[in-house]
Write a protein that binds this DNA or RNA. Structure first.
Lengths: 339, 339
DNA sequence: AGCGAGTATTGGAGCGCTCCAATTACGGCC
DNA sequence: GGCCGTAATTGGAGCGCTCCAATACTCGCT
């Protein structure tokens, strides 16, 4: 009941093991006749080549590693789909590790990938440049990260542009007093920067409300004072500034948090206040929520990351790329007459 | 700049390659002295053993494959975390494949795992029993599936019990006219069955509303007619039956769909109608939604699946296990006085 | 001193492939 | 019909480990 090897296939097809190897890696210099014989033997024996042996013997493993730190983030999950389709086409296999493993079990994903002898790495999570140097294989960064320098190509959505788009949308429909609810992390920082730039260009004052985490609850707690939580609408915030007419939250859950806070304060969306989110997650399209949201296409970005890594693997130089996000207008934003 | 091998380590530590191998697999029959010398050499050379070579030479690869068909499903993602922590402890590596790859690229994940010579497989997605037989390694099924028989242990949450819990909760707070919005898939079927059983025990009539997909939009469209969509509240549905006072949706997004339909019909939740969801996803805890939901702990289930597979790998027999779900009561359900 | 029973350590074979250099086969051409 | 270039095919070496049987080293005892 031993597993068939390349030798078994060779014997059955009446050729040498080397010829079988050539067929498996579909070399062009094999006669059609022999190729057919080998393929037939493969099918008859239900033979599956061992990637272990192939990787050990050859100069590459045809596998690439992906480090993700947040599997719960749908954006990365979708990007992964794009990545997979790009590299799968070339016969590469994907090995996924999550960065949180590091903390939980003391396993460095980069070490794990070294042990697997992956040909390249996609970083969809934070990682120190030093750790990456050690990897010793081509690396591309997928998504906006704080890590910079070290010359790795970064393939990401243009988050700052997304922030600008959100702010401009609100300005175009008449808003002048627009608050940005931001959170920790590189993406949030970039989105916030875009908001600031767009506001600056329009000569409007910015107001950034930082939340502790990129979560609904955190955003809700953070904006509550500004919206005059609980009591009569129209209340003024801290320094006596008027209540804003619009809020840009750096992601969808936070936008929902803002909507929740608005409801608590007796405000209607978009009547009293407009809200824009980011990522266009499924929840943005729920009837109960119907959130205007900005988003890049994660699959497109993931696919580009895969293509970039393939270029790097083929020896070609490759640079960073960014993709412009789009705005999806739903029912959480509306024009206002007088601010 | 060649990568260091076990021979380099051996030479540096002044021992044989075999001794190094023993240390790496922390064999107990190595003197502390030599062990320290080897470990020091490993550190100095920044050596990482090759899993390829180890797997090829040894009787096992210490890697296990996971087939997931829905990466966007947070339940599976969390179960994966539990699984990882269980098997990671024993030094196993995880290789993840998604079933949709099959459709997209014509790659059967089980073939991919065969090529990698994984020691065992966790099936968190549908798969035909036949395909699994071919795998030739121990398999455990994670989560409720339609596949049955073939003797593989199934580690899952007790979905039928969850359905019962949801229905009983609604009955306990006075509801008698309870609708179940169901969808396709094995989990939905089980949850629906639990609902039916609980209703039957209480002598209440059941009413199942099937939706096309396990999604917000589908559920919303499906319940709209029953809630008397759009016009005055209190309207009667098709055969003149009175409007239900409660709805159990087989997952959270669908529950939100029901809430949306209720809002469209001018009904308040939970004033006019109570809604229970399933899975206790993050969105259930949003202030705007605050959904009462049933859920098992996916990590617990994932961890159990890992432990079960480890038992199987160590040669021990292992059986199926189910875990009881819990109810999390929030603001979408409330008592009623008269039905 | 000598021997057995462990315990610690070692060299060799081989896992299933790829790569390479060498060999054979096949036409075409003078 | 022998010769050459190219195309097709082959055997051998070796990738970096694990496993195994064999050897070397301890003691404690007679």
């Amino acid at each position: 009941m031993r597993r068939p090897t390349i030798y078994d296939v060779a014997e059955r097809a009446g050729v040498s093991k080397s010829l079988v190897s050539l067929v498996l890696r579909d070399s062009p210099r094999v006669s059609d006749e022999k190729r057919a014989a080998v393929l037939a033997a493969v099918a008859e024996l239900d033979y599956t080549p061992s990637r272990l042996a192939a990787g050990l013997a050859g100069t590459r493993t045809r596998s690439i590693g992906v480090v993700i730190d947040d599997f719960a983030n749908l954006w990365f999950v979708e990007a992964l789909t794009g990545l997979r389709s790009a590299i799968g086409r070339e016969g590469y296999a994907l090995s996924v590790a999550d960065a949180s493993l590091n903390a939980h079990l003391g396993i460095d994903p980069l070490d794990a990938f070294r042990a697997l002898r992956v040909d390249g790495i996609v970083l969809a999570g934070e990682a120190t440049a030093a750790a990456v140097e050690r990897a010793g294989v081509p690396v591309v960064v997928l998504g906006t990260r704080h890590v910079s320098g070290s010359g790795m190509p970064v393939i990401a959505s243009d988050e700052a542009e997304g922030g600008r788009i959100a702010a401009r949308h609100l300005m175009e429909i008449g808003h002048r007093s627009i608050v940005c609810v931001s959170g920790p992390g590189a993406s949030a920082t970039e989105r916030e920067r875009g908001y600031r730039e767009a506001m600056g260009e329009a000569g409007l004052d910015t107001c950034i409300v930082p939340a502790d985490a990129n979560e609904e609850q955190a955003a809700r707690a953070a904006v509550a004072p500004i919206l005059g939580g609980g009591s009569a609408a129209g209340r003024v915030r801290g320094a006596g500034a008027p209540r804003p007419t619009a809020v840009f939250a750096v992601n969808d859950p936070m936008a929902v948090g803002v909507m929740g806070a608005a409801a608590d304060a007796g405000l209607t969306v978009p009547g009293d206040i407009s809200v824009v989110g980011y990522d266009d997650s499924p929840l943005a399209d729920y009837g109960l929520v119907s959130l205007t949201s900005v988003s890049g296409d994660p699959r497109e970005v993931g696919e580009a990351a895969g293509e970039t890594l393939l270029e790097l693997l083929s020896g070609a130089p490759a640079g960073s790329r960014t993709f412009a996000p789009r705005l999806v207008v739903r029912d959480s934003t509306s024009a206002i007459l007088r601010p």
